[in-house]
Write a protein that binds this DNA or RNA. Structure first.
Lengths: 154, 154
DNA sequence: CCCTTGCTTCGAGCGCACTCCAAGGAATTA
DNA sequence: TAATTCCTTGGAGTGCGCTCGAAGCAAGGG
C-alpha cells in the first residue's frame, strides 16, 4: 500500500482513512505527478504548492533523481482535505498543526479527533450564520421584487 | 439627498426595508450614538467604523456641532447588513458598490436586486460547500472514533 | 550546440481588511 | 485651573495567504 516506492505507510500517516472518493480527477492509473500536473488538478499554483511544503502544510513530497517533486495520489488526497478545510475558513496555521499531528503518528489520534470535532462545530456554526444571512437576503430581495412590481403597476 | 438631520428619507435611501428586527441590541429609545457606543453594539472598533466611512461603506454619518460622529438607528441597521454580508465573504469593495447604489437612489433598484440575487446564489453555494466539508469531517471523525474504540479493545 | 520548457531555490512584494499611532480639540470633573 | 476622557484627522503599520521574480539547473528537439 505504499505510494512512495519504498516506505510502507499506514492510513494514519496521511489520514486518508482509505475511503471516500478522490477529491480531484485522477486521470491516470499512476502515482507520480509533477508540480504542474498537481497545479492543474487542484487549481492551486505551483508557487502555492511549494509554499505549502515550505510551511509544513504538506508532508515531505517525494523527489525525482534530479530533485523535482513527484506528488503521489496520497499527496493529492491530502491536498483535497486541505482544500476543504480552507473553505471552512480554518487558518493555515491550524492546518499546519493538524499536519504536524499526522506526521507525529498514531499517538496523536485523540488530539486529531478533538481538533476535527472542534472544526465540525465551527463549520456547523458557520452554516447557521450563512442561513441567517440568506434570510436577510430573502427579505431584501422580496422588498426589491415588490418595488419593481409596484413600479410596473404605475 | 442627504441623510443628516433635516431630510426625510425614504426606505430606499438606506435599504432598511422598514422591517425585520434590529441586528443589534438598541438599548435606548434614541437615535444618536457616539462612535464608541456603536463600537460596543456592533463589536467593530471605532477605528474600523471610521475606516468604513472613509472608504464609502457607510453613508455620511451625522455630526454633532463639535464635529463628532452621531450614528443613527438607520446607521446601525446598515452596519447590521454589512456584518451579515461580511460573513458571507463578500469583498468590501462589493459592499461599497452596493452602498453607492443605495446612495444613488431608487433608480438603482433593479441593479441592487440583481446584486442581491447574485449574492444569495453565492451564499447558497457556500453553504453547499460547507455541508460537503462536514461530510468529509464526519467520515474522518468516524475513523478516529473507531480507532480509539479499537485501541480500547486491545 | 543552442533553444525552449519546466523545474529548482530564496526572498521580496502584494492585496485585503483592518489596526494603530501621533497630535490635537472639546467637554467633564476635581 | 488642571486633569481626564472622548473624540478628531491623516497616514503608517500589521498579519494573512498567497504571488511573483531572479537566477540557475536538467532534459529534449532542431
Amino acid at each position: 500500500m505504499t505510494l512512495t516506492e519504498s516506505t510502507p505507510v499506514d492510513a494514519s500517516a496521511t489520514d486518508t482513512c482509505a475511503s471516500g472518493p478522490p477529491g480531484h480527477p485522477r486521470p491516470e492509473g499512476q502515482d507520480q505527478y509533477t508540480i504542474s500536473e498537481v497545479a492543474a488538478f487542484t487549481g492551486l499554483t505551483a508557487h502555492t504548492l511549494r509554499w505549502y511544503e515550505r510551511i509544513g502544510l504538506m508532508p515531505h513530497v517525494d523527489r525525482s533523481h534530479t530533485g523535482q517533486r513527484r506528488f503521489s495520489n496520497r499527496d493529492l488526497d491530502w491536498l483535497s482535505l486541505v482544500a476543504k478545510l480552507r473553505l471552512t475558513g480554518m487558518p493555515v496555521a491550524d492546518m499546519v498543526r493538524y499536519a504536524e499531528l499526522v506526521r507525529a503518528g498514531e499517538s496523536t489520534f485523540a488530539e486529531r479527533h478533538e481538533l476535527l470535532l472542534h472544526t465540525r462545530r465551527d463549520v456547523h456554526a458557520r452554516i447557521a450564520e450563512l442561513q441567517d444571512t440568506v434570510a436577510v437576503l430573502d427579505q431584501k430581495i422580496g422588498f426589491y421584487a415588490d418595488a419593481s412590481q409596484a413600479s410596473e403597476r404605475c
